[in-house]
């Protein structure tokens, strides 16, 4: 609702009230009339403001709005930027390290999902461990949603290797039909042979994890 009111005197109303006792009778009457008009004007404003809620309520109606959303299957994951492999002794005990993988996933009934891993670069520099010789096996810890890989797997440069499979009709977080935890997590436990043939020094390889959901 839009109300348009026009002031007959603008901002002189206040000044007229203040000055009425200082002026003569004719000027006083003139200002008195002006004051009366001002009071009437601002009275209409006050009435409009006080009555506005009532007017609005009386004009309230109802309608129905249909909302629709297309919820698609999706998967997202997160891994820490680096995982150091360490050994507990200096007697050629193998190196090991655990990498947590966090993920959020939603699959359709009848669909499914998976997390896989593949090396995008071998250990460098040369002279150290090498993925081409199968030097980096891993196992998977329990997953908070889905089924983690079973048995010993080996990181490959040429193929995706399994980390997790997710059944259809599941989702991350919120409880109920979805998992209680958000995000979900699974751990990957790496072990690296400590071969005396390795040169001393620091070596690093890159692994890429991929999640898919249908």
């Amino acid at each position: 609702m839009l109300l348009a009111l026009k002031s007959p005197r603008g901002d002189t109303f206040g000044r007229a009230i203040v000055c009425r006792h200082r002026l003569g009778s004719s000027e006083g009457r003139k200002l008195k009339n002006q004051s009366a008009r001002g009071i009437a004007y601002w009275g209409r404003w006050l009435a409009a403001i006080l009555c506005a809620p009532v007017i609005c309520i009386s004009n309230t109606g109802s309608t129905t709005q249909n909302l629709s959303a297309q919820i698609n299957p999706i998967g997202k994951l997160s891994v820490t930027a680096g995982i150091p492999l360490t050994t507990s002794a200096t007697t050629f005990i193998g190196f090991s390290g655990t990498l947590p993988v966090s993920y959020r996933v939603r699959t359709t009934p009848g669909g499914g999902g998976a997390i896989t891993m593949q090396a995008t670069s071998d250990f460098a520099p040369a002279g150290g461990p090498s993925l081409s010789t199968g030097a980096l096996p891993y196992t998977c810890g329990s997953a908070s949603l889905g089924t983690s890989c079973s048995g010993a797997q080996t990181v490959s440069k040429t193929a995706q290797t399994p980390v997790l499979t997710v059944p259809g009709g599941v989702c991350t977080g919120g409880g109920g039909a979805c998992s209680a935890s958000d995000p979900n997590s699974v751990t990957v436990n790496f072990s690296l042979t400590n071969d005396p043939q390795f040169q001393t020094g620091a070596f690093a390889a890159s692994l890429m994890f991929t999640i898919i959901a249908t």
Binding site: V79, G82, P84, T90, L99, A202, S206, M208, F209
Partner: peptide, 19 residues
Amino acid sequence: AQFAGTGTTTVSVTVAAEA
């Protein structure tokens, strides 16, 4: 860490003199 369709991590190892 941010979530995405893929994630990359670096596996590092320091090989020391041993006997």
